[in-house]
């Protein structure tokens, strides 16, 4: 099983190569790993990979005059994270991840076009993936730090519930409900 540092090295490679799609795929693999291991740090890296993929997919981010500098800063901070993970500095891992989140927030504040910020959107998206994988809504939001209502609304816009079996249909439950409340 790959270590967290291996995933961050992979993330760096895709980000440095402006490869948005593999970053998205990495984010999917990471959230699955976070669910199986119940690991919030892996979940944060999954959200980070998702947000970086989003940035690389948007021309208005990439064409901004600020972007080359921001990109270099991101790469520097990711290298720092890789170094810390290799030297087992547990406390510094969270600090460096938080630094990357602040950098994302800055880029988003300057160039984003939505009211909901990119990091919050990423958390809701990845929490919905954790829910799709079988976690409860509450557990998925705890893992990613997302807001419960944002996640539920996001789930509503997906097809997650389409492929799931029903123990009793709406009709059967409604009939049972009618009998119960009449008793």
């Amino acid at each position: 099983m790959p270590e967290l540092v291996d995933y961050v090295v992979e993330l760096r490679r895709y980000f440095a190569g402006n490869d948005a799609k593999p970053l998205r795929e990495l984010s999917n693999r990471l959230i699955k790993e976070a669910v199986l291991q119940d690991n919030k740090t892996i979940a944060k890296i999954a959200v980070l990979a998702y947000c970086l993929h989003k940035i690389l997919s948007k021309e208005h981010f990439l064409k901004a005059s600020y972007w080359p500098r921001a990109r270099a800063d991101f790469l520097f901070a990711i290298d720092e994270l890789i170094h810390i993970l290799r030297t087992d500095g547990k406390r510094e891992v969270q600090q460096t991840i938080n630094k990357l989140i602040r950098m994302l927030d800055n880029v988003d504040k300057n160039f984003g076009r939505y009211v909901q910020n990119l990091w919050d959107k990423g958390k809701a998206k990845l929490a919905s993936s954790a829910y799709a994988l079988g976690m409860s809504l509450q557990k998925a939001t705890e893992l990613t730090g997302a807001d419960l209502r944002s996640v539920q609304l996001y789930i509503g816009s997906t097809l997650i519930h389409e492929e799931e079996p029903t123990t009793e249909s709406l009709r059967e439950k409604l009939e049972k409900l009618r009998k119960m409340v009449k008793d």
Binding site: E164, T166, L170, R171
Partner: peptide, 16 residues
């Protein structure tokens, strides 16, 4: 209700 996150499928709604 479904679009706001209730755990129900379109198939179940149609059947109902």
């Amino acid at each position: 209700a479904k679009l706001n996150g209730c755990g129900i499928s379109f198939g179940e709604i149609d059947e109902f």
